[in-house]
Design a protein around this nucleic acid. Structure first.
Lengths: 226, 226
DNA sequence: GGAAAATGTGTCACATTTACACTCGAATAT
DNA sequence: ATATTCGAGTGTAAATGTGACACATTTTCC
C-alpha cells in the first residue's frame, strides 16, 4: 500500500467524459458513441474513460480523444465535475466533463466507426442517460459564452478558412443568424486575421478569400492589453 | 466488494477545497486554515475535506462549510477540478474546488478559531502550497466574471444593505474603484432592488437608505427574458 | 455654528451596436 | 453568347450603451 497517510478514507473511480464538437456543412455536430455495457447498451453516450493511476484528468481526456478519433493536440477545456453518488449505477464514479473542438477533416473516420461513434447535429440531439444531457448542456453553455471573447471556435476549422465559414461556425454554436456585414466589420478590426491571398472556390462560384489566424500575434496583443 | 463491474480500474481519494469569501470593512476576505498535517504544518491552506462514500461533491463542500463556519445554505459554486498525479504528496487525491460567498456576520467565530482558521484580505494573500494558489486565482477570476451578470455578490451582505456597501463589495472583488453615480444608475433600472424605507446610520453621519433584493422577482424576470 | 463625512442626484460626449441593400465575379444553363 | 444563379463582398445612419464628471444634502462632532 502506497498511501497509508489517508487510511480509512473512501476511494472512488474517476472518469472523464468528452463532449466533442465539430463543424461540417453549416452545422455543429457532437460525437457520440454506442454504449457497449449495461445498462443502456446500444444507446448513444458521451465518449468517456477511466482516469489512469498515474494520469492527470487533462491527460485522460486527451487520451480518450486520441484513442477514439486518432487526433492529438485537440483543444480541450474542463466543463464541470459530476459526483452524485448514484450517477452511475455501475459503481461510485466521479466524472469530469470536458469539451473538445476539433477539425473534422483531420479525424480518423475508420477509428470512430470501429468504436461505434457517430456524429449528431446540435439541432437534433438525442436524450442521453445518466447525467450526460446535463454535461452536454453545460458544455454548450460554456462554448457559447467562450466564443464571445475568445477565438476558440477556430479550432473547428482548417488553418485556412473563409469568413463565411467562420460565420457559420458562430451561427451554429449560438443557434442564431448573424449579420454578415457586422460580423466581417468586427473581424477587420482584429489584426491577427490574416488574408492569405489564396482563394477557395469549393463553396461558391465566385471564389472566397482564405484567411488564417495568427495565434502568436493574438497572444501577444492579449498579454499586452492586460 | 460492491463494485465488481469496474474491477481492476484504479481508485482515487476525492476531496473538495473551499475558497470562502466574505466582506468586512470595505474589504473582501478569504478564510484560510492552519494546516495540521505534514508537509507544510502550520501554513495557511484552503479549507478542504474528503468526500464521503455516499456523499455528492456539493454535499461535501456544504459539509465542510458547516463544520468549519457553522453555516448552512451558503452560496457555493464549483470552480474546477484538479487532478495532477503529484498534486498531493500524501496520495493520489483528486480535488474539486468550490468558492463560497457568505455573510460574515452570521458565521461562528469560535468555531473557526477552534479549527485554526483566519481571515485574509484579498489584497494581501499569502502564498499557498500544492495547487491551492491556482485554485484561489481561478475562483477570483470566476467571481469577477460572475458579478458582471449575476447578483451573487449579495450573498456577502446582510438581507438589508446600503448601496454604498454593495458598491464596496463590487470594488473589492474587481480590485478597482467604480463611479458612484453610474453604479447607482444601473441599480435603479433593476426593479428587484427594493428600498425598504429603513435607514442605516452605523456607517455614516447622514443615514443611508437600506435596500433588499427580491430574489423571486429576479428569477421570474430572468426566466421571462429567456 | 462651522467643519467633517458620507449620502444622493443628472447630463453630455463618446463609443458601441444594430439594421439594412446592392454590386461583383464566376459558373451554369439555355 | 447571353442570361441566370449563387455566394462574396462592401458602408452608412440611427439607436443604444458607457463613462466622465460636480455639487447640494443631512447629520455628527467639536
Amino acid at each position: 500500500m502506497a498511501n497509508t497517510l489517508y487510511a480509512g478514507v473512501p476511494q472512488f473511480y474517476v472518469a472523464v467524459d468528452c463532449i466533442i464538437f465539430a463543424y461540417e456543412n453549416n452545422d455543429i455536430q457532437v460525437l457520440l458513441q454506442k454504449r457497449k455495457i449495461e445498462p443502456f447498451v446500444g444507446e448513444p453516450t458521451l465518449l468517456g474513460g477511466f482516469v489512469g493511476a498515474e494520469e492527470s484528468l487533462d491527460d485522460a481526456a486527451h487520451r480518450v480523444l486520441l484513442e477514439r478519433t486518432g487526433m492529438k493536440d485537440v483543444f480541450l477545456e474542463q466543463v464541470e465535475t459530476f459526483g452524485e453518488p448514484d450517477r452511475d449505477p455501475g459503481g461510485r464514479v466521479i466524472s469530469t466533463a470536458y469539451y473538445a473542438l476539433l477539425n473534422k477533416k483531420l479525424h480518423d473516420t475508420r477509428l470512430i466507426q470501429k468504436f461505434g461513434c457517430e456524429w449528431y447535429s446540435l439541432k437534433n440531439l438525442p436524450m442521453l442517460h445518466f447525467d450526460h444531457s446535463k454535461m452536454l448542456a453545460k458544455a454548450i453553455g460554456i462554448l457559447r459564452d467562450r466564443i464571445g471573447y475568445s477565438p476558440v471556435a477556430l479550432n473547428l476549422l482548417p488553418a485556412e478558412f473563409t469568413l463565411t465559414q467562420l460565420q457559420r461556425v458562430y451561427e451554429g454554436i449560438l443557434g442564431m443568424e448573424l449579420d454578415k456585414r457586422n460580423f466581417r466589420k468586427r473581424l477587420k478590426e482584429m489584426p491577427y486575421f490574416i488574408e492569405t491571398g489564396k482563394k477557395d472556390k469549393s463553396f461558391s462560384k465566385r471564389a472566397a478569400a482564405l484567411y488564417n489566424f495568427d495565434w502568436m500575434m493574438y497572444k501577444q496583443l492579449k498579454y499586452y492589453h492586460l
